[in-house]
Design a protein around this nucleic acid. Structure first.
Lengths: 194, 194
DNA sequence: ATTTATGTAAACTATTCTGTTTACTTCTTG
DNA sequence: CAAGAAGTAAACAGAATAGTTTACATAAAT
């Protein structure tokens, strides 16, 4: 009774839907985007969408997981591969990556924070994925700060992440990556002083 | 033909509506809140609402202006009245005020940033008020940094504001004012190093 | 070959949304 | 008192919303 599933089928359509939904939610917001809008772009039918996801909220959670997995891996991969003398330099590299993403026009705020803003105190599952994203980023930063023998690596990591998230907001407001460069400088000072 | 308007009339109902709308928008979000929800709490009719505001968007802009005026005055007043030796201490006081507000349960993110998130690239007028709020806060901080003879007061002000906004997000995520205390420490280091 | 899984297309339900309109009320002011 | 401004209440219009259902197509596996 073993079902031989071709590698593409089953998950392929699902992934298509998630990517398409992610793009539109990211640009348009969640409440402002109807499910009809999401399927319009793709050749996907509404029925298929609701076969794969219980509800619009289920689809949103899937896009959040997609965002977290790809973005976290991107960041972690970017700084892990670097060869530096001081692990603090790896932490500062998260700002370099962000600058590149913003300059490429691929950022419209932090997708996780956008979701958190729209669903605060309303959808616990959505909030949980957002929190996970930030916490994992913070733990990644903390790891390298710990390696650099920084005391209070946990507290410094929180400070760095707050600068990181704050710079995303500021760069969105003025449509420029300049604030991120300033945030990197500030992060450097904070890490050096510890 | 002079209309003798009692101080309360005319503007009173309008202000009532703005305050009521602000409370609900702040808690519930903008797209997630219908105009019916806003008038339900008050004894205000929908007709009156649309007499005073052209549209829901007009009401949102009014709530944003209300937020900016009250919050900015609150912050500016709080730090201006303080007697300190170093103007940098006034800058750091914005974090103290934020801690108080968060601990009192009066914060659900930055109202201006919440609006910016929901209406990015959609409603220029809404975005403009949000930008104004952040810019005026930044200029206030810059003023005191300049007084303290800090070189690059503009850049440091941006860094402080990014920490400020980032700490609002982080405090919302973990439902605690602890991140704001960390942000204050970080701001102190940044200002001292300049 | 036929069953099963997976898909599209589109009509449909039922609710909610913004905004308008009609009819009535209240209060102030000349 | 009469006129007019400002209000409430509620029905209404028209579009958009989330989600369901019916009918049909395709492709692979037993």
């Amino acid at each position: 009774m073993e079902k031989k599933i071709t590698p593409t089928s089953k998950t392929q359509k699902r992934n298509e839907m998630i990517k398409s939904a992610f793009d539109i939610f990211y640009k348009n917001g969640f409440h402002a985007t109807g499910v009809d809008t999401i399927i319009d772009g793709t050749g996907i039918s509404k029925r298929t969408l609701y076969k794969h996801f219980l509800s619009k909220e289920g689809l949103i959670i899937a896009t959040l997981n997609y965002y977290h997995e790809t973005r976290y891996k991107e960041i972690a991969g970017y700084i892990e591969k670097a060869v530096v003398e001081n692990p603090v330099d790896k932490v500062l590299m998260i700002f370099d990556l962000l600058i590149k993403l913003v300059d490429a026009g691929n950022v419209n705020g932090c997708f996780a924070m956008n979701a958190k803003t729209e669903y605060a105190h309303k959808a616990a599952e959505i909030e949980a994925v957002c929190d996970l994203h930030i916490n994992k980023l913070e733990m990644l930063v903390e790891k390298y700060l710990f390696e650099a023998n920084i005391t209070d690596s946990k507290a410094i990591a929180t400070q760095v992440i707050m600068l990181f998230e704050g710079s995303i907001l500021r760069s969105k407001a003025i449509q420029s990556s300049a604030p991120i460069k300033l945030a990197k400088k500030a992060a450097k000072v904070i890490c050096s002083q510890s």
